[in-house]
Design a protein around this nucleic acid. Structure first.
Lengths: 354, 354
DNA sequence: GGTAGGACCCGAAACGTTTCGGATAGCTGT
DNA sequence: ACAGCTATCCGAAACGTTTCGGGTCCTACC
């Protein structure tokens, strides 16, 4: 029994030699095919365990065209807030994968130009069985590309055009509508809107929610109150300018935590109190939101749960190829914190709900 | 030019047919070997682009035994705080991978029993070129296993025994020493210690830091003040019991955000003020820490940066096999917030540093 | 005019697995 | 005693790539 440490890789050939059978039989035994004698199967399994055999994932994938992994491209630009979101999302997706015996292949894209190439590499390289398509743009050629090449995918987010693919998304319109309606109910009439890049499709949905809430309440839309494509510093400038006008807004909706923080800070620096002089509601719950002073009332999307659901859906599609279209909209809820109050001189005319 | 949509996979064979060369030459052309005429190389590249060719990652890996990915097993038990840490860490690792043209394979382990099998599957399955070994235990057989099988790895964390492998770790002892010394400098003498499972090696290092700080200041160690293996509820119970004794602690070090939160809450429920009656310092900076009331003074490890460095180190080891041992200790810094103050009846006898 | 050397190309084997299409042996029933 | 069946096994091909060890020209040199 001159056993030596397994210096190198143990393959099925080693098992075959050890048990005196063919590689074919070893393979079929390991996969529990029923045309292998039970006795043989057990023997093979035992030897495999003794030799600490683990199949070569690459060889297996090459043969049966199944990678046992799904891919997720992390977008190149990750500003702070966004980052926290993705990480939650990823955590959820990884958990879902575990249940299906798959792994999650994370590919961080370094440069914006490299994004397209990385996408195709992943889509065509047979390294993953499907793709979690994130960061969906208003019109996104990747969707067509994936369909043309028959790679299963689930989008997280929606394009603006025809939606003939499965996706999971937050119902941004409903979320914002909820938030703005809450402000209106508190008595606010002049409500500013701070938005990020309109390249992302969620931007349009959110703005639509804002407009809907206003029009339902019979408040006319004032485009001087609406600003998009903002960064943190730009938001500060915008708010500084808005807050010194005579008909300044008494509330603001911010489409991202850093925008809300900028608004809070600007108000304070002008000697205004939050929430007494300015109510702030933010979309995108996260660490910053709770930690800010005062803590922000927020529309919160369940980031982790979204990742989980998206991955689950994708893995199902991979397993049972033809499943019907699933288009799931998650309606976010509003968490009431201390950044919202009725406008200072508002006389309540009716009892507030809740 | 009856071009049809690439219904199926495009392989090198297709390119070879198109340009009328052998597969060998196509391969060498694509990899820019210099025994292929420049003209031919260009032609092949162009055709490859036209056909939207992307190499089959599996076939390639099988051949040259290189997966272009590193693995990371996400531990099965992820309580809230821990979770946030991993996600930051993962974000950093993914970013580092991008620079090396590798991907990050995330494998979430569902059950505790499955952990060992999943580990070996990843370690032996040739699916990754190396492993980021996280969650290192006091004595960790995985380290030996990996070395025996020659798989490159970098540990995040240290075992207690001989450390003859590359790792990156937070210098927990230094971090805690810093924190406790700060408390002592404020005038505290009775400082409680709340710790988590001693299974993790960081636990011992942190406790050592605590003891060091005490002994340097000539304060004797009182084991009634030291509690480990705590969960949130247990910490509440412990603090409740400690805070009603006559010689109750005036400060507490908590080895995790949920422990600190429990301590804060318990103090408040007993009518004690934080920081006036009880100073709290926490290890492990994160969302909860900033958001708590009052915000916690914290020893903060740079989670994301740690992930980045660990992955970088691993990728270097993979690229240039034999590199010297790297054992890097990151000394965390102390962030002063509002949960710490001198003990109530303390008379300053010397000016405070900082 | 022979040959050495360089430039360019290719067939076949290999990586480790799965599977297709048999092959062999033993048993059943007539 | 032979066809037919079942139970068990196996050889060879295939997946798509890389590489080893050549091969065939052509030019240049003596």
């Amino acid at each position: 029994m001159a056993k030596q440490l397994p210096k190198t890789m143990v393959t099925m050939k080693d098992i075959a030699r050890e048990v005196g059978l063919s590689i074919t039989t070893v393979s079929r035994a390991l996969n529990d095919h029923d045309d292998v004698a039970l006795e043989t199967r057990n023997l093979v399994h035992e030897v495999a365990r003794r030799l600490d055999y683990h199949p070569n994932a690459m060889a297996r994938s090459l043969q049966n065209n199944r990678a046992n992994a799904i891919g997720l491209l992390i977008p190149p630009i990750l500003h702070r807030a966004y980052d926290a979101f993705w990480l939650d999302f990823i955590g959820g997706a990884a958990a879902a994968c575990a249940h299906f015996g798959s792994d999650l292949l994370l590919s961080a894209v370094s440069t914006t130009e490299g994004a397209d190439h990385d996408f195709k590499r992943l889509a065509r390289g047979r390294r993953v069985d499907g793709l979690l398509l994130c960061d969906v743009q208003q019109v996104d050629p990747r969707i067509d590309y994936l369909r043309r090449h028959g790679l299963p995918f689930v989008a997280f987010g929606r394009t603006m055009g025809p939606q003939d693919y499965s996706f999971i998304d937050v119902d941004g319109a409903a979320g914002v509508r909820q938030a703005v309606e809450f402000l209106i109910q508190l008595g606010h009439r002049r409500i500013a809107y701070l938005g990020v890049s309109t390249k992302f499709s969620f931007s349009s949905f959110r703005l639509r929610g804002y407009r809907d809430a206003l029009s339902r309440a019979g408040i006319s839309y004032d485009d001087r109150l609406v600003h998009q494509e903002l960064t943190g510093p730009m938001a500060t400038a915008v708010m500084a300018q808005l807050l010194v006008t005579s008909d300044r807004p008494t509330a603001v909706f911010a489409s991202g935590d850093f925008l809300a923080l900028a608004a809070e800070k600007t108000a304070r620096s002008l000697g205004l109190d939050v929430p007494e002089d300015l109510s702030v509601v933010v979309f995108d719950d996260g660490a910053l939101v709770e930690g800010s002073d005062p803590p922000l009332t927020a529309v919160n999307q369940p980031n982790r749960r979204l990742g989980e659901e998206a991955a689950e859906l994708l893995l199902q599609r991979i397993e049972f190829r033809e499943v019907p279209l699933v288009q799931r909209l998650v309606v976010p809820s509003l968490t009431h914190r201390r950044s919202t109050a009725p406008p200072r001189d508002y006389v309540r005319t009716m009892p507030l709900a809740q």
